[in-house]
């Protein structure tokens, strides 16, 4: 796999020998960043697991307040967005600028759909008085630690939601760059590394869904 065309070389920063080295370095850097993301969320997963081991009943009772259908739909939406993200790389590898753009737009649309569904879930809970922390006023769950479950729920889904929003920004940036014709089969590093990020956001949801919604 040699990339010796001048179009390729123009993307190579001065301190790299060639495009291959630069691509590998960028990708490795992104994977290391993903490691930090996994451990960042990891602290919340640890808190979740420890409290679940302490109060299994709480989790069973509180989880009934979460809407499984909406959670399942969101899972599907994110999986589909992961597919379109991967397909945009596939299209870029085939020098298909138009398809790359379409797949990126579909990914953004899915991310928005995810956030809209999340919005309805949140507002429904707020309506019932299910807030994080001190503002929690819901009386439907007969457990002294009920507010802690929802604190963890809001922290986990909230942090995930922030990552989705950041993802929307990044993918939109890719779309703009793609419109300018920045990507081709020899250079698509930004799509590749944003793609890795986006798939990680998907993976975290893949775990959040059964852990929060599917308890009985």
């Amino acid at each position: 796999m040699s990339h010796n065309s001048s179009a390729v070389q123009s993307h190579v920063a001065h301190h790299f020998v060639d495009s291959e080295q630069q691509f590998d370095a960028a990708k490795f850097g992104m994977w290391i960043f993903l490691v930090t993301e996994i451990l960042f969320f990891g602290g919340l997963f640890a808190a979740y697991i420890i409290y679940r081991a302490w109060y299994p009943d709480l989790y069973t009772m509180a989880s009934t307040q979460l809407d499984t259908t909406m959670g399942a739909i969101n899972t599907g939406v994110l999986i589909f967005s992961s597919l379109t993200m991967a397909l945009s790389i596939w299209a870029a590898q085939h020098n298909d600028k138009k398809k790359t753009g379409i797949f990126l737009l579909v990914t953004i649309a899915c991310a928005f759909a995810f956030m809209v569904i999340k919005y309805f879930e949140y507002t429904h809970k707020f309506h019932l008085g299910i807030f994080p922390g001190e503002a929690y006023t819901f009386t439907g769950i007969d457990h002294p630690k009920a507010h802690i479950f929802f604190s963890i729920y809001y922290m986990m889904t909230g942090l995930h939601g922030i990552h989705v929003i950041i993802g929307i920004g990044l993918i939109f940036w890719l779309w703009m760059k793609n419109n300018k014709g920045s990507f081709n089969s020899a250079y698509y590093t930004p799509i590749e590394i944003v793609g890795l990020y986006w798939h990680l956001v998907d993976i975290i949801w893949i775990f959040l869904f059964p852990l929060l919604y599917l308890i009985d």
């Binding site: 590998d24 990708k27 490795f28 994977w31 290391i32 993903l34 490691v35 996994i38 451990l39 990891g42 602290g43 997963f45 640890a46 992961s82 597919l83 993200m85 991967a86 793609g195 890795l196 798939h199 990680l200 998907d202």
Partner: peptide, 25 residues
């Protein structure tokens, strides 16, 4: 999707390590 099966083993290694250290925590 992330195509780790065809990727550098160091990328795989860093992913495995993150999960391992989460389990330690």
């Amino acid at each position: 999707f992330m195509n780790l099966r065809n990727d550098s083993r160091f990328n795989l290694l860093s992913f495995v390590f993150s999960v391992l250290f989460l389990l330690i925590l």
